[in-house]
Amino acid sequence: MKPFSFHSPRGLGEAVDLLERHGPGAQVIAGGQTLLLAMKERLARPSALVSLAEVADLRGWRYTDSGALEIGAATTYAALAEAELTGVPLRGWHTEIAAVAGDLADRPVRTMGTIGGALCAADPRFDMVTLVVALDAELDTVGAGGGRTIRAAEFFDPVGGTVLRPGEILTTVRFRPQDGFSGVAFEKFRYRVFDAALVSAVCALRLGADGAVADARVTVGAVHPAPVLATTAADRLVGGTPTAVDTVEIGLVAADEVLPAEQATTSVRRYQRELIGVLVGRAIARSHERAHTTTAGS
């Protein structure tokens, strides 16, 4: 590691000031599970680290009056994964966020790793990156020039990285209220349990009053530098009720859309292409099943 100075601000305002004072070499450290690995390799060489460990406002989650779910950016995966044990249980399809948080990396890494840290690291293989785009989350940031809200799909640069400006801090991840979707399912494939995803896929469905799919989002991650929305595949879902045959077919549509055969020239790419088809199919089937269970139950 290159030498750096270390700061532990007590509040968000102080953190913003510190980042501004230390200039472009300053970087935020939340859990540090990605950043420290990069620093050891000297891929990241911050001159100052501003830790968010003591900024209590950035941890935990709450439901707003409109029913949206706001998760503090420095909330750890471990806290999210144990959401059912804490004061604010997650409801409906929001539990899929906890399920994803509890099934990535390994147990000790989840203790430190944070949802916002993963988003800012913007590694396309990270599950949370795919999930926030898939669920059309909004990301709140604060910087010296004030705050702004960025839609998840616009937060990630298509060529990699984020649109965060130097000195800007991600503070909140906001998910739609319950009625935003009827069913959500996240699927991924990795070689070993603690590996990052080789392909991840999410299907988020909203059913209309007639029980048919009114709105669908199909998202594929880990294949390109940023998550990709498979809009053709999603359009195929709208207006119908997917059968087992449809899920397989639409999976193949998504594979053609995200990674066409002519681009899949290496064995890894060909494998990813196959995985897209299978995982999107599974995500559609599972989200649809959940959508029906939720609608029937409510």
Binding site: F6, I29, L36, A53, P108, T111
Partner: peptide, 13 residues
Amino acid sequence: DIVKSCNVLALQV
């Protein structure tokens, strides 16, 4: 809470 101590700065905790 369990952590991997090689990937945490002492100052962080």
